[in-house]
Design a protein around this nucleic acid. Structure first.
Lengths: 334, 334
DNA sequence: CTGCGTAATGTAATCGGTTACAGGTAAATT
DNA sequence: AATTTACCTGTAACCGATTACATTACGCAG
């Protein structure tokens, strides 16, 4: 309730002196400093940041656009983002878009009306799947893909997927099913390329029937797996494009009496906390979410504060983690 | 970049008319309205919400204090909170405290300096485990306990726990282990009371050795379960105070060759998405997180806007969900 | 003693909206 | 015709900080 003027009056100095005492104390005499601090303590003064932000035309907040916060993969990101933002004195405005462009626009408007200084985009985007973010607003894609435009932090999805499928091939698998995300999702596109790279290398023909489309939820993985159960010529391994779908798929497969990994190997992607604790534990690709979040936030704040960027895209390494859900193919079949 | 004065000049009206055209168009003639809208379109005017908020001494943002956003139980809450806030024109400032009071204070300061209008507290609190939030700042506990002070939305943890343990007893279990949260956590206290209520009713003596302390993480559940494996007189059922610890515990038990539910029944609490998909699927208590989040946000906004509260505490019903992790005790023992 | 540099402080403008208050005009009432 | 009323509009104060610029005091060199 008390303003800087109340403090000034009580301390017997001017408002300018109070302001300086707080933001550049070295410019103020010790005598004044003491009087000011005493007055502040006496009236319980708390600076009104709304006024400060208004004056400086900055909100010191950034929007984090996330398709679904309940997705465990995104929560790791968000935690890292929030951590870094907090360190640098910025607040994180949570923008759960639920995958709809309308909500995304709502948050973009927040930046245009000065309620936020920039955007971290967690939805992957490429030229095709446009993000409707005007080019003049600071934005970093923390979860980019091969063809993401603008500043981005990403992993090499294609290479990581290839690594995984190469591994399955090295275990003797030749019929390898895929549980993909939605067809036009850039992650799906990149990872599918990696899959194709691997099988082409191994001289395996691409079979469209081996691709089951999901949407990165556990439920969709559970459903997608049925496609493989009922096949006459069942795949011996399944490459799922994320862990949640893999876990859902394992549920279906086990329920159908298919043993994992003995009858079928299953792999995931992301290495969410759960991948280690499901049964069997999941062979997967670990993304450095912590690191990616920090770098994305650093990059965004640098753009906001007008500092030059050393690089506009950053590709971080992934880790390939072998657990219990994969095994060599059984040679004695049927 | 363009301000309301630019628009006024171009439209040939006063700034007051422009302001009114935007916030109370019914008070402005059609002629003026048209001129104003034309001018707005021409210069691409976007109101500066920082100025508006500054003037109205409101930030239209609320802090959501969450111990750990990566905890799947909290993410459900947050999604509901964000949803409702967005509907009402408020932003959600994410406050991941990582369980530390320092970070909590940091966010409380945000409210004191006007960067947020109120707080949703997800950490349960009671008189004993104080939340250091000054009483003059609007705050609602969205995840309260029996002795939570101040406005709160909660479930009846004690009764829910009793229901669960009653069920285990009805299946013939007499030695029922507990995996609890940290001892002084209010949820732990409430749920332990429920456990005690149930066994007392059934004439079972309370055995301190049957209580293994965890901290609500999967990892802690995994460790706590060892306590039961090595017991001479093993419990036939384990009541875990949340799903994550239950899932961790099942991992340990299965690794030790203990079959679930044949050799030991395991139950959880919360009904996170994963509870349905783990192996075996988990018998648990479902909290209406969606509903609780919405109600908590509504209550907070009502307090912020100075409307009267019909009630200061709201206890919502839980749902008891029986799945595959529980079964009648085997009478032919050893 | 004058002039100049430095340090500390104060005065007042400023940011971009909102809104109290004061006109001004035209229709309705007396 | 005079007065009231309703409606629309404009002027300017205001919110609480920051900060450019002016002012004052003081020490020191010339």
């Amino acid at each position: 309730m008390s303003s800087i003027r109340d403090v000034a009056r009580l301390a017997g100095v001017s408002v300018a002196t109070v302001s300086r005492a707080l933001s550049m104390p070295e410019k103020v005499s010790n005598e004044s400093l003491e009087k000011v601090h005493a007055a502040i303590a006496q009236v319980g003064y708390k600076p009104n940041m709304l006024a400060r932000n208004f004056r400086s035309a900055r909100s010191y907040a950034v929007v984090v656009l996330v398709p679904d916060i309940a997705n465990p993969f995104y929560s790791l990101f968000i935690r890292a983002l929030e951590d870094r933002a907090q360190q640098k004195g910025y607040a994180v405005l949570l923008g759960d878009t639920r995958g709809t462009p309308e909500r995304e626009l709502e948050y973009i408007r927040r930046v245009e009306t000065r309620l936020a200084d920039g955007i971290i985009q967690l939805r992957p985007s490429s030229e095709k799947s446009q993000n409707n973010i005007p080019s003049d607003i600071p934005c970093v894609n923390a979860c980019g893909c091969e063809y993401t435009t603008g500043p981005a932090i990403r992993i090499d999805n294609r290479a990581a997927a290839k690594t995984m499928v190469d591994y399955l091939i090295s275990l003797g698998h030749r019929r390898i099913g895929v549980i993909s995300g939605l067809k036009d999702n850039p992650h799906t596109v990149d990872r599918l390329e990696g899959y194709k790279d691997a099988i082409r290398n191994a001289g395996i023909e691409y079979d469209r029937d081996l691709i089951a489309e999901g949407d990165f939820t556990m439920w969709s993985g559970l459903n997608a797996a049925f496609q493989f159960c009922n096949m006459k010529n069942r795949p011996t391994a399944v490459f799922s494009m994320n862990d949640e779908m893999a876990i859902g798929a394992m549920q279906t497969l086990k329920a159908q009496g298919i043993r994992i990994p003995d009858d079928m190997s299953v792999t995931g992607f992301d290495d969410i906390a759960y991948a280690k604790y499901c049964d069997p534990s999941l062979t997967t690709i670990s993304q450095p979410a912590e690191e990616m979040g920090k770098m994305a936030m650093d990059m965004l704040l640098r753009i906001i504060e007008g500092e030059p960027l050393s690089q506009t895209e950053c590709v971080l390494p992934t880790e390939f983690i072998i657990r219990k859900s994969t095994s060599p193919v059984k040679v004695v079949a049927q």
